[in-house]
Simulated assay, not measured.
Amino acid sequence: MDLKQLNAFVAVADLQSFSAAAKITGLSQPSLSRLLKQLETDMNVALIDRYHRPLQLTEAGLFFYDKVRALLIELDTITNMTKRMSAPSSALNIGFVPSVLYGLLPEIIADFKHSAHQGANEADIEVNLKDISSYQQIEALKTGEIDVGFGRFAHQDPWIQQILLRHERYVVALPKAHPLAQNEEQRLIDLANNRLILYHQTHLPVSTTAATIIKTPNGMDKDIDSTEPVTEPLLHLFAQHGITPLMTTKVSDLQVALGLVAAGEGITLVPASLKSMRTEQISYQPLIHENVTSPVYLHTLKDFIHPKIPDLLRSVYQVYEQRGITYRVQQFI
C-alpha cells in the first residue's frame, strides 16, 4: 500500500468515475485501474463495486474511504505546515468576516502597521486581507491561505488554537419609521412579530431547541409546540429566551440585510460596532438582554504561529484600550 494507490482510490471514490479520476490524477485509466486492483489485492478486500454506474463503494470501501481521506488531508496539512515552518513568509495573511471589517479591524491593521514601522522598514510589512467565513477560515489556516483569522464562532479542531477577544453586544436595526425606532429598551419578545432578516451563511455547531412563543398582533403571547433544533445564529438568540419570530427572510449577506431594513422590509440584529452604517434610514437601539452578544475570536494553527501574530494581538489590545473596551489579555501558545 502506498500514497499513489490511496490518492487514486480517493479520486475514484470522490468522482465515481475512472475516466474523471484519471484526468485529475494525471494517470491513464489502465494505470489507475491497476493501482486500485493492487490495493484491493494487498488488503484482500473489495473496495469498489464496479457493476454499478456511477461507480459505488462497497460497505468496506465506504469505511476505508472515510478514514483514508481524513489521513490524506492530515498528511497534506502536515506537509504544508512543515514548508511554512522552514521558510515563513514576511507577509501576514488575515482572514476576516465582514462584521469584523465594518467594526474595529481597520483600526487594528493601521496600529499594527504603524507599530511595525517604528522598528522595521515599512516595505518589509505586507498585510493581505481575505473576506472568508468563520468555518472556511479553519481549512484556509491548514492550507496556508491565511495565517490568522478573525471570526464569530468557536471551533473545536485539533489543528487550531483560538482565543476569545471579547463579547460584542447586539443592537436592533429598525427602519427609521418603525414604531419601536426610538425605544431605547428593546426586548426580544417585543420584536417577535416583525420580519427578522437573517444573514449568516454558516450555522452554529450546537443547537437550541426552541420553546416557541410569539406575540400576536393583539399583544397576547401565543405558544407554538416545536422541537426543531435551532442553529441559525440570530434565531438561536431568540430561542435561548424561549421566543421564535413569526416571520423570517434569509439573505446572502449583512449588507443586503441592512439594505432591506433601510427599505422598511424588516428588522435584524447586528453587532454594535456596525451601528454607524446607513444611519439616515436605520435606527439602532440597544437590547436590555446583556447576554445577547456576538463573540469575536482570533484563531491560528497550534503548531505554527506566524512571527507577526503576537504583534497583531498587541495591536488588538491597544485599540481596545483606546476605545475603552473590556477584555482579558490572552496569548497564543
Results as ranks from 00 to 15, higher is better:
Lys4Ile: 15
Leu6Gly: 05
Leu6Phe: 13
Val10Leu: 09
Ala11Cys: 08
Asp14Thr: 09
Leu15His: 06
Ser17Lys: 05
Ala21Glu: 01
Ala22Val: 02
Ala22Ile: 02
Ile24Gly: 01
Gln29Asn: 13
Ser31Cys: 15
Ser31Gln: 14
Ser31Glu: 15
Leu32Pro: 00
Arg34Val: 11
Lys37Tyr: 13
Gln38Val: 15
Gln38Arg: 14
Thr41Leu: 14
Asp42Phe: 15
Val45Ala: 05
Val45Gly: 08
Arg50Ser: 09
Leu55Thr: 09
Glu59Thr: 14
Glu59Leu: 15
Leu62Arg: 14
Phe63Leu: 14
Tyr65Pro: 08
Ala70Trp: 08
Leu72Cys: 01
Asn80Glu: 15
Lys83Val: 15
Lys83Asn: 13
Arg84Val: 05
Met85Glu: 15
Met85Asn: 12
Pro88Glu: 01
Ser89Glu: 09
Ser90Asn: 04
Ala91Pro: 04
Asn93Ser: 12
Val100Gly: 05
Tyr102Cys: 09
Pro106Ser: 07
Ile109Phe: 01
Asp111Met: 15
Gly119Asn: 11
Ala120Val: 06
Asn121Pro: 06
Ala123Gly: 04
Ala123Arg: 07
Lys130Asn: 07
Asp131Met: 12
Asp131Trp: 09
Asp131Cys: 10
Ile132Phe: 08
Gln136Ile: 03
Gln136Trp: 10
Gln137Trp: 06
Leu141Val: 06
Thr143Asn: 04
Glu145Arg: 04
Ile146Val: 14
Asp147Glu: 12
Phe150Ile: 10
Phe150Thr: 04
Arg152Thr: 13
Arg152Asn: 11
His155Trp: 10
Gln156Ser: 13
Ile160His: 02
Leu165Ala: 06
Arg166Asn: 03
Glu168Arg: 06
Tyr170Pro: 11
Ala173Ile: 00
Lys176Gln: 09
Leu180Ala: 09
Asn183Lys: 13
Glu184Cys: 14
Glu185Tyr: 04
Glu185Cys: 10
Gln186Trp: 02
Gln186Lys: 06
Asp190Arg: 04
Asp190Leu: 11
Asp190Ala: 10
Arg195Asn: 13
Leu196Trp: 03
His200Tyr: 15
Gln201Phe: 12
Thr202Glu: 10
His203Ser: 12
Thr209Phe: 13
Thr212Ile: 11
Ile214Thr: 14
Ile214Val: 09
Lys215Met: 12
Thr216Glu: 14
Pro217Ile: 14
Gly219Pro: 04
Asp221Ala: 15
Lys222Pro: 04
Ile224Lys: 11
Glu228Thr: 12
Val230Thr: 15
Thr231Ala: 09
Glu232Met: 01
His236Asp: 08
Leu237Glu: 13
Phe238Gly: 01
Gln240Phe: 00
Thr244Gln: 11
Pro245His: 01
Pro245Tyr: 00
Pro245Val: 01
Leu246Met: 11
Thr249Met: 05
Thr249Glu: 07
Lys250Pro: 06
Val251Ile: 08
Leu254Glu: 01
Gln255Ile: 07
Leu258Phe: 08
Gly259Thr: 07
Leu260Arg: 06
Gly264Ile: 04
Glu265Thr: 04
Thr268Met: 02
Thr268Gly: 03
Ala272Trp: 03
Ser273Ala: 07
Lys275Ile: 05
Arg278Thr: 12
Ser283Arg: 11
Ser283Glu: 05
Ser283Thr: 06
Tyr284Cys: 00
Tyr284Ser: 00
Tyr297Lys: 05
Tyr297Met: 10
Leu298Gln: 00
His299Ala: 01
Leu301Cys: 07
Phe304Asp: 01
Phe304Cys: 02
Pro310Phe: 15
Glu321Tyr: 01
Glu321Pro: 00
Thr326Val: 12
Arg328Val: 04
Val329Gln: 15
Gln330Pro: 07
Gln331Pro: 03
Phe332Val: 11
Ile333Thr: 06
